[in-house]
């Protein structure tokens, strides 16, 4: 005998919401394209991106959606300055993170890496990748978006993302989460870039984008 809380839920969006989501998705595509080019330059490999997705969901449904509960994961967090308040989380499956760190250190095997080399390489990767992402968006909308110094942790996927989902839950029943995934040499790089924008930042980006496009 078992009881289960029903967590199924869907969100309704208006036509205006759809237009705004479309604008944000387009901004994300611009940013992710530049980020992929930067990553490709660093790794000297072909890096492509999937079409970015925007999830407008209840935050607590996200772990079920990804279904990566206990998968060892490296998460790198950057935050935008306080004015715009926004968390940016780049995750790699741990094994993939180590492969990338080995490439950046130009060593032939992950066994040649020590913790310092690994941390330094991945933080630098996040700086370049997310910096490139934000710069391209900043240039487009004419707003300076500066990230903080990256913080990195390795743990299970659910443990890493729950802090962000809790933060989202504190301000809204629904969360807008921007997601993009990279491919390395045509294969899934097992990496997710998640952005948790505040309402203020969403409004600002949409307003500036409309202004730029003359809408």
């Amino acid at each position: 005998m078992s009881t289960q809380i029903d967590v199924n839920a869907t969100n309704k969006t208006t036509q205006d919401d759809e237009i705004n989501l479309g604008i944000l998705r387009e901004l994300g595509s611009i940013g992710a394209g530049h980020a992929a080019t930067s990553l490709s330059d660093i790794l000297q490999q072909s890096i492509t991106i999937d079409v970015p997705k925007i999830h407008n969901v209840k935050p607590y449904l996200i772990p079920q959606f990804y279904n990566l509960h206990d998968v060892p994961t490296t998460g790198i967090l950057l935050q935008l300055n306080e004015k715009y308040g926004c968390d940016i989380l780049l995750t790699f499956e741990y094994i993939e993170a180590r492969k990338i760190a080995a490439m950046m250190n130009m060593v032939s095997s992950v066994d040649e890496l020590d913790q310092t080399m690994e941390t330094s390489a991945l933080q630098e990767l996040a700086n370049i990748l997310i910096g490139s992402f934000l710069t391209s968006i900043s240039d487009f909308v004419g707003v300076g978006l500066m990230p903080t110094t990256p913080q990195m942790v390795t743990d299970t996927f659910d443990a890493i993302i729950d802090n962000f989902l809790v933060k989202q839950s504190m301000v809204s029943d629904n969360a807008l989460i921007f997601e993009t995934r990279f491919k390395r040499n045509g294969e899934d790089a097992k990496s997710i870039l998640m952005i948790f924008p505040t309402q203020e930042l969403k409004d600002l980006l949409v307003e500036r984008s409309k202004s730029m496009m003359g809408v």
């Binding site: 005998m1 078992s2 009881t3 289960q4 809380i5 967590v7 607590y60 449904l61 996200i62 772990p63 079920q64 509960h69 206990d70 743990d155 299970t156 659910d158 443990a159 890493i160 993302i161 729950d162 802090n163 989902l165 809790v166």
Partner: peptide, 20 residues
């Protein structure tokens, strides 16, 4: 799951993964 709850009297293990 996150924000979920289960009560059971069968010989099972309830499992969850948490951070904060």
């Amino acid at each position: 799951d996150m924000a979920g709850m289960k009560v059971d009297s069968r010989p099972v293990e309830l499992l969850t993964s948490v951070g904060s």
